[in-house]
Design a protein around this nucleic acid. Structure first.
Lengths: 153, 153
DNA sequence: TGTGAAAAGCATTAGGC
DNA sequence: GCCTAATGCTTTTCACA
């Protein structure tokens, strides 16, 4: 797939806002009939423009509303250590995001926990026990002002 | 709504993974017929357990793959200044997330930009011009190791 | 690429356990 | 609460501009 036209982009924008629209409704919003919209959609999915469709659930209501950004520094970092760290992190459900970052820390992790007690236990029993870990710094989220899920394009 | 039973939780878990399942498929996964699943779904939506359905699009492919966490410190922070800041941030499309955080900075922003050039212009022309802003620190994302979108429960 | 029509399959409601 | 069954839409395919 070379490049997306305006209609493709519009489809992506609409679906980013509401993924449960019927093809018909979607077609109405981009002023086409169902068939071409259906085909474009399949193409966008097949080419990886749409990674997945998901329901955004309320973390607070599901008792996972205690959010912490945890900065991690390793004693040293090479390919093997980085791969091990990545593998471990993939398997930790509390870690919802993990980034390799610039600055004085190596990684930034987003953690979802039930409360401070749960988070403390998590640090002591899970994160803190990772090999080659040098230091941890927890930045607690006091309020979520904005969370768009999705991007502007 | 008082509390969710196991089937409700299962429905939420499945929809978090794939929001475009038909009611029928969803029903099969929780071993029920369509009708009760349909009713549970409507209840979960009505009670805010499901906040929205969205397509996750590939930021890289849409030229928004340059990600920066930007820490913001204000000269001082009171209710009015915080409200102003929140209002401004809601209107900035590059800011996909914004948190009020503990530590030596007041806010943590997640920024999606096209590239470093775009980001620099954004800092100079948009973020840097906000009133009562004391300092900014950019933490650049070099690699995204994990991004689940969604939580474990 | 697009349209419109038709077949197959689903969502949604009704009626009953 | 759950089920099965019926109806009216939608999705999806196909022929054709």
């Amino acid at each position: 797939m070379e490049t997306l036209d305006k209609i493709d982009l519009q489809i992506l924008r609409v679906l980013q806002e509401n993924a449960r629209l019927t093809t018909k409704e979607l077609a109405a919003r981009v002023s086409l009939s169902s068939t071409p919209v259906f085909e474009r959609l399949k193409r966008l999915e097949a080419n990886g423009y749409i990674k997945k469709y998901m329901a955004i659930v309320d973390a607070e209501k599901l008792h996972q509303g205690f959010i912490v950004f945890c900065k991690v520094k390793m004693t040293r970092l090479n390919r093997d250590i980085a791969q091990d760290f990545s593998r471990i992190v993939q398997g930790i459900p509390e870690v919802t995001e993990c980034y390799n970052i610039s600055g004085s820390y190596d990684y930034l992790l987003k953690i979802h926990a039930k409360d401070m007690k749960h988070y403390q236990a998590f640090i002591l029993n899970v994160l803190g026990t990772i090999e080659h870990l040098s230091s941890l710094e927890s930045v607690f989220v006091m309020d979520e002002l904005k969370h768009t899920y999705g991007i502007h394009f």
